[in-house]
């Protein structure tokens, strides 16, 4: 942990406390461009709080959070951070239920976010082609005109991943993407995320170990707000402290 240059995400000595409870305690994490990082850890380890800090929902009490090696994220709000190129998928799939699948993606599509730009927006052929492409990637093309509320849990997860793709971010924060998915859907998701990680940085938080294995990425185990172990999944899951604190047995 020395220099922030050549990193996509750089967290150094980040701490945040809620009413005296240290949710994040001197956390330091680096994500390189086009790198995937999986984060595991017990409930309450601070995984979601970490994402809140990166996306501007929570501001840290101490520490440095840099994006793309230079932009200080602690000074920015959610919208500004999203527009820098950080996309987030939530633990509980949050899609806009009273909109159609298509409209969900159209809103997410990387376009000027201003009021009047949105008021006078008309989808260009390129936009339509891009949304169609995403719909095919996330296998929702057949349901494009349905309300998002009518999708199954797994399909909502996929729609949210599709919305992330539409945002065209440089860094994706993906919180429990395979909760509620079948085994084959889980495999597909892992494949999709690996593919995305060839061009962008991806941080995945997940409990499903076989899914994390499928990702084949560097793994960090968080506990009580700081890094417990780091390495490949095999290294991390062989670590006696991780076994004691997280994996059990």
């Amino acid at each position: 942990m020395s220099t922030a240059s050549d990193t996509m995400l750089y967290l150094d000595g980040v701490s945040v406390a809620f009413d005296g409870f240290k949710a994040i305690n001197n956390l330091s994490i680096i994500v390189k461009p086009a790198e995937m990082l999986a984060i595991i850890g017990p409930n309450g380890a601070g995984k979601t709080t970490m994402m809140d800090i990166i996306t501007g929902k929570t501001s840290p009490d101490a520490g440095q959070v840099l994006f793309d090696g230079r932009t200080d994220l602690t000074k920015l709000d959610e919208a500004a951070i999203a527009n820098l190129g950080i996309g987030r998928k939530f633990q509980k799939p949050t899609v806009f239920e009273s909109h159609t699948v298509w409209d969900n993606l159209e809103m997410a599509l990387k376009k000027p976010r201003g009021i009047f730009a949105a008021l006078f927006y008309t989808a260009s052929d390129a936009d339509v082609a891009r949304i169609t492409e995403i719909l095919e990637t996330v296998r929702l093309y057949a349901r494009k005109d349905e309300l998002a509320a009518n999708l199954s849990h797994g399909q909502k997860q996929w729609l949210e991943i599709g919305m992330l793709l539409a945002q065209d971010p440089k860094l994706l924060l993906v919180d429990e993407p395979v909760a509620g998915m079948t085994d084959s859907e889980t495999e597909e998701t892992a494949k999709l995320l690996r593919e995305i990680a060839t061009t962008r940085s991806v941080v995945v938080v997940e409990h499903d170990m076989s899914f994390v294995r499928d990702l084949g990425s560097r793994v960090i185990c968080l506990a009580e707000g700081s890094v417990l172990a780091e390495g490949t999944l095999d290294q991390v899951s062989a670590n006696p402290v991780v076994i004691e604190r997280y994996l059990g047995r």
Binding site: D77, A79, A82, F90, F96, E97, S98, H99, A108, R113
Partner: peptide, 15 residues
């Protein structure tokens, strides 16, 4: 409508 239904989610889309 997105703001009405899920205000904070809309922020994370960059609006």
């Amino acid at each position: 409508v997105a703001v009405r239904d899920a205000e904070s989610r809309t922020r994370f889309l960059g609006y």
